[in-house]
Design a protein around this nucleic acid. Structure first.
Lengths: 131, 131
DNA sequence: CGTTATGCTTACGTGAACGTAAGACGGTAC
DNA sequence: GTACCGTCTTACGTTCACGTAAGCATAACG
């Protein structure tokens, strides 16, 4: 049923988005589903791209940022300069992500510390209440 | 000059944001600077909160999400139920962040792989061009 | 002491990322 | 055949996160 092509509804159910969202992404050239008549047919490629799109969004990238990143994932094989540009941009993006990971680790440490403090406040409150 | 209080401009320079942004965050109750007359005076607490705000934004949280997180970082010490709620929410948020880290690691691995492919494409193109 | 910078409030404007409603078209279930 | 999905296009509406301009008060500088 979903071997090669998927309808827009199947895509929506699979990724938990609305049809409007998929059409919007197509309009922004983030997706490029096939057509039969004027019905959209989403391929494996579209699914892979959508996964990347949603992931990017969860990390605060704009759709325009994401479009640039997507180009990295399937550049025009016959266009060497474009491949080189994509690699350069990708290397830069990688450094970006690694920086983000450091920040994320820091945030996790902070939050853990805060939870310890919270736990202390609770046990202290209970201790004084028991007096 | 910036020992205890900072002007809005000093804050802007320090965090690379506009005055409008700081006023906007205050209106949304993310910050609560003191006042002298009607001039805002930002304290160490505001600086700590702003750091958290900007960090949250980089990870795609909405300002409303962030407001909830901020409450975690200085709950009302006299309100035990609120502390407990904050801890619960914080624990949940921690799991959330750790999930994000897994995703981020995945994204980094993907991108590294993609860069390898790109490098291969470049060297292949150059090899065939040399024939 | 006038000019220039900084800050305040109020309020309308803007770009991104969709939501939503209207109307038309094609398959298909009865 | 017609009633009903599912999908399409077009287009106006909406929310979030600020930008920007106007008008006024105060502070800092020379």
């Amino acid at each position: 049923m979903a071997g090669k092509f998927m309808t827009i509804r199947e895509m929506c159910d699979l990724f938990d988005v609305t049809p409007r969202t998929l059409r919007f992404y197509e309009q922004k050239e983030l997706l490029a589903p096939e057509r039969t008549g004027n019905r959209r047919l989403f391929t494996k490629r579209d699914r892979a791209r959508l996964k990347l799109i949603l992931r990017g969004k969860r990390f605060g990238f704009s759709l325009e940022d994401i479009r640039q990143i997507l180009d990295l994932y399937d550049p025009d094989q016959n266009n060497l300069p474009q491949i080189k540009r994509a690699c350069k941009l990708g290397t830069q993006r990688l450094a970006d992500l690694e920086e983000r990971r450091k920040e994320l680790d820091e945030a996790i440490q902070d939050l853990r510390g805060q939870l310890v403090i919270g736990a202390e406040m609770i046990s202290y409150a209970q201790a004084t209440a028991a007096e």
